[in-house]
C-alpha cells in the first residue's frame, strides 16, 4: 500500500512533540487568562469610577489595546520595549505581558458592561431594605454580575488561546513551530508532510477551543 503521508504524525516521537508544543501554547494562554481575569476585574471596576482622569486613562488604554492588532502589540513589547529601555525580555515573558495587557482590556470591558447593566432599582431596592453599601455589593450586585460574566469570559478564553498562535512569529517553539520543525526534519521522506502536520495542528486547536466555546454558547442561551 502506498504511504499517504499521514504516518509522519506517528513516526518516532513526532506526535508527542506536537502535544508538547500544544502544552506550551496552553501554558501561555492559561497564565495570561488567569492574570487577565484578576487585572480585568480590577480594571472593569476602575472604569466605573466617576472621575474624569480615571475615565480618560481607561478609555485611552482600552481603545489603544483594542485597535492595534495583537501582533503589533507583541512587536512593541518584544522589540520596542526591550530596545527602548535596554532590558532583555524572552519571547515567553513578552507573550505573557502582551496577552495579559490585552486580556485585561477585554475582560475589563466585559466587567464594566456587566456592572453597568445592573439596573439602578437593584441598588435602590437593596438600600431601601436597609442593606449597607458592602452588603448591597456582596449579596445583590456581585451575584448578578458574575452570572452575566460567565459566558462572555469563557468565550474570551478561546479567543486568547487562538491568539496565542501569534507567538510563533516572534520565534517561540509552540505547537505551530514544532509542526514546522517536524515538516523540515522529514522533508525527504515525507514530501507531503506539510498537509498532514498543519492539518493536525488545525485539528488540535479545534479540539481545544470547540468544547470551550460550545460550553460558553450553551451557558449564554441558558442564562439569557
Amino acid at each position: 500500500m502506498q504511504d499517504t503521508g499521514l504516518s509522519i504524525l506517528f513516526r518516532g516521537i513526532n506526535f508527542l512533540r506536537l502535544l508538547q508544543g500544544l502544552w506550551v501554547t496552553l501554558q501561555i494562554s492559561l497564565i495570561s487568562v488567569g492574570l487577565s481575569f484578576i487585572f480585568g476585574t480590577l480594571f472593569g471596576m476602575l472604569m466605573t469610577v466617576k472621575n474624569r482622569f480615571v475615565q480618560a486613562f481607561c478609555w485611552l488604554y482600552l481603545n489603544f489595546i483594542r485597535i492595534m492588532p495583537q501582533l503589533v502589540l507583541l512587536f512593541l513589547v518584544y522589540f520596542g520595549v526591550t530596545r527602548q529601555w535596554q532590558i532583555s525580555l524572552s519571547a515567553w515573558s513578552s507573550a505573557i505581558i502582551v496577552f495579559t495587557l490585552w486580556g485585561t482590556a477585554e475582560m475589563g470591558d466585559l466587567v464594566r458592561g456587566a456592572i453597568v447593566s445592573i439596573p439602578n432599582h437593584q441598588y435602590e431596592s437593596a438600600a431601601a431594605l436597609g442593606m449597607t453599601k458592602q452588603q448591597i455589593f456582596r449579596f445583590v450586585i456581585l451575584p448578578q454580575t458574575v452570572r452575566r460574566l460567565i459566558a462572555p469570559s469563557i468565550n474570551l478564553i478561546t479567543r486568547m488561546i487562538k491568539t496565542t498562535s501569534l507567538v510563533e512569529i516572534i520565534g517561540m517553539v509552540e505547537v505551530l513551530k514544532t509542526g514546522q520543525q517536524i515538516i523540515d526534519a522529514n522533508r525527504m521522506q515525507y514530501p507531503t508532510g506539510a498537509l498532514w502536520v498543519y492539518g493536525a495542528v488545525f485539528v488540535l486547536y479545534f479540539l481545544v477551543c470547540w468544547p470551550i466555546s460550545t460550553l460558553a454558547g450553551r451557558l449564554e442561551r441558558k442564562w439569557r
Binding site: 498562535s165 488545525f202 486547536y205 479545534f206 477551543c209
Partner: peptide, 10 residues
C-alpha cells in the same frame, strides 16, 4: 475555533 495563522499555514 481555530486561529487564522493556522488556517493560513494550512
Amino acid at each position: 475555533n481555530t486561529p487564522m495563522l493556522v488556517q493560513l499555514f494550512f
